[in-house]
């Protein structure tokens, strides 16, 4: 631990603060993932892990390596840029998949209650992802959860 003791105090203080903050934010995000009740609330929990938690720890890593190696180490920016560009795509796709699957479940249930099996096949054959998605996911969602809320 001699390399650590050689650091100036301001760099060590900044890096420690950012590390503690990043660790806490990461933990809080996953607590939200575990604790919240519905899926649509849970998807907001990891968002703070991905943005603020990752950001804090990347900046701490930059400060640490720049000071200990006494040259500019900024290649953590690549991870930050990559994560900031890909995390929105991931959350949007998961949200769409969840909406699509919820609609699919409710439609299969309604199709099963129809006595005519041919109609059930038509209902299922009509379930193209693009077509069903152009529908009205908001009302489908609200209709499903309104008895509870």
């Amino acid at each position: 631990m001699t390399a650590l003791d050689a650091m100036p105090w301001w760099a060590a203080l900044t890096a420690s603060f950012l590390l503690v903050l990043g660790g806490l934010i990461t933990l809080i995000g996953t607590v939200g993932l575990l604790r919240l009740k519905t899926f649509y609330q849970r998807i907001h929990g990891p968002a703070i892990t991905i943005t603020l938690g990752t950001g804090c720890i990347l900046i701490a890593s930059m400060v640490y390596f720049t000071v200990t190696q006494s040259r500019l180490v900024i290649h953590e920016i690549l991870i930050a840029a990559f994560v900031l560009m890909t995390a929105p795509v991931v959350s949007m796709l998961i949200m769409r998949a969840a909406l699509y699957r919820n609609q699919y479940d409710s439609r299969v249930v309604s199709a099963r209650s129809v006595p005519n099996p041919e109609q059930e096949l038509v209902e299922r054959g009509a379930l193209q992802p693009e077509r069903s998605f152009a529908g009205d996911p908001v009302n489908a969602h609200e209709g499903r959860t309104s008895p509870r809320s």
Binding site: L4, P8, L13, A15, S16, G23, T26, L27, L33
Partner: peptide, 28 residues
Amino acid sequence: MTVGTLLSLAIGFALVCVILAMMLCTVR
């Protein structure tokens, strides 16, 4: 308390936090 012990304490705390977070993710 020297600067080095402060930093290594912070790293230890953050490591524990992230490992706990991974456990919670695994539970979910």
